[in-house]
Nucleic acid binder design. Structure first.
Lengths: 201, 201
DNA sequence: TGCACCCGAATGAACGTTCGATTGATGCAT
DNA sequence: ATGCATCAATCGAACGTTCATTCGGGTGCA
């Protein structure tokens, strides 16, 4: 099994879709291989032909979803965007990706909070939730003296943390989704992250 | 079984401690009742005497931990604290509680990301992660025109989101714990949350 | 012929839960 | 005081189910 195959083989696509759907509705617990086979209409034996174990399936699915996220969030940045516009754009994409892909959000939440993630942490050097590219982007803002002159990880924690918390609150709590709310949230993060010594607006 | 008993009965305390420990190290998956019985040195039959099912045990444990958190975060606020000082104090307590109780943090992360939480959402009217008291506190800041004049849920998302993200980054990533880092993070949130029309420092 | 792909009944381990037995404390009638 | 009944607390072997995984066989293409 290789990455290219994962995108072309429709059986694997069906398995991914079914796993995502089942984990979203029934949780990690409630998604046995038998149900994945049923939902995807792919025989259990076939699933095990591509994935040596259930863990391997989950891990492959994780990498697949992560690349979807990474492709998404930096998409659509125009040449004429200044830093603040990009700062807003990426953050908004981040939130919208999770809102539009509720199954992936749910899967990620469960994946990251499982000791399974902790065990494979070493193998997950790459961005978590697209954070590496985000990290570079925020570091750029620090270098340009646009953002506060602090450890970039602090800004990442704020940037990502508010986004995830926002999605969670929209999904589970009383927070309504609206462009106005997103705009005000972005202002909150921006005002917090921006270098007060150079503030202009 | 009632709440008072839960605090006095040492068998239940042992069961709670064992469950917390096992979930932290092995995850929701890897903590069968048999292991809880083994680790706590309480017979399976006895556990089922107090909790009708595993779900009930988990739910009771959740409520227990939540009350620990609630008791903790608003503790130690002095009379002479102004709003900003309280704002910092509570946030810092929030982060420190989770850092000092890594097992509870891990348990909460798994609990909230499980569909189990979604199913019992109705029954969990009370504060999630102490958010209700936090909500009231932030609403107070809005009413006093100290914080931005926005929907309080936006500020909650920022306040809590950054805290959780910070703990997560300290636990799993490259972020070092230091008072200096906490202080800078609190400044980021404060600068984002504060009413710019009345800014003084 | 070989190899990749595909299938699903069968397997054995692990799980949540049940149940009958035992103990000791409490209350009550004698 | 004594005998009796009740019941919460305790225990862990046993039960039935469900799960991840295996395996032997089937198909069609190179």
């Amino acid at each position: 099994m290789n990455v290219r195959l994962m995108h072309t083989n429709e059986k694997i696509a069906a398995v991914f879709a079914a796993t995502l759907k089942l984990i979203h509705t029934n949780g990690f617990h409630g998604t046995p291989m038998s149900k994945i086979a049923q939902e995807s209409e792919v025989a259990i034996g076939t699933i095990y032909h591509y994935f040596p174990s259930k863990d391997d399936l989950i891990f492959a699915l994780f990498k697949h979803c992560r690349s979807l996220l990474n492709d998404y969030i930096f998409d659509g940045i125009k040449e004429d965007f200044d830093y603040k516009a990009s700062f807003f754009h990426v953050w908004r994409n981040f939130v919208k990706f999770y809102l539009e892909n509720a199954q992936i959000f749910s899967f990620f939440e469960q994946f990251f909070s499982s000791p399974y993630y902790e065990k494979n942490k070493a193998e997950i050097q790459e961005p978590v939730g697209g954070q590496n590219k985000v990290l570079d982007f925020l570091q750029e803002g620090i270098d340009k003296k646009i953002l506060k002159q602090v450890n970039v990880h602090l800004l990442v924690a704020s940037y990502i943390g508010v986004a995830l918390s926002t999605v969670h609150n929209i999904k589970f709590k009383d927070l309504q989704f609206s462009e106005q709310n997103l705009k005000e949230l972005m202002e909150i993060i921006w005002d917090g992250a921006v270098n007060r010594n150079k503030i202009i607006n």
